[in-house]
Amino acid sequence: MAEEKIRVLIAKPGLDGHDRGAKVVARALRDAGFEVIYTGIRQTPQMIAEAALQEDVDVVGLSILSGAHMALIPKVVELLRAQGQEDVLVLVGGIIPDEDVAKLRAAGVHRVFGPGTSTREIAAYIRRAVAEREQASHAQQPDDPGQEG
């Protein structure tokens, strides 16, 4: 009966209205077996963090093209932390200059996927990273009977 699914929020922060890429990723992740919550375009960091909280997701995937990534993405990470979701994986997809990739990583983004990354690679990354995080959280809690699965 007990069944756990990896839940992924896909959101498109910023003002540009193109969500083709985000939708392609959302569908591909569904086809990889994840439960994908798609929130659509023009999402503010507050909207994204709120949805991540209510949906209790494991992963937040942000698709961004507008160049406003440095203004928006660290804010999402910050809000997630402030609401106790520091263990949520934050992934970014889009065209991001190398120096900004380093800055985003430093701000707490787990991984930046450039254009042309295969959706299969993204799905595999998520599966691996969520499993590792589960292990780490079990290791921190020796008293945990580990029976939630």
Binding site: K5, A26, R27, L29, R30, D31, A32, G33, F34, E35, V36, I37, Y38, T39, G40, R42, Q43, Q46, M47, E50, A51
Partner: peptide, 22 residues
């Protein structure tokens, strides 16, 4: 709906509920 093939799902109802946020 959950996809019977992959077991995954695309949950898109929130797209129409953006005005409720905050």
């Amino acid at each position: 709906p959950t996809s019977p093939f992959s077991g995954g799902a695309l949950l898109g109802d929130r797209v129409r509920m953006g005005k409720l946020s905050g």
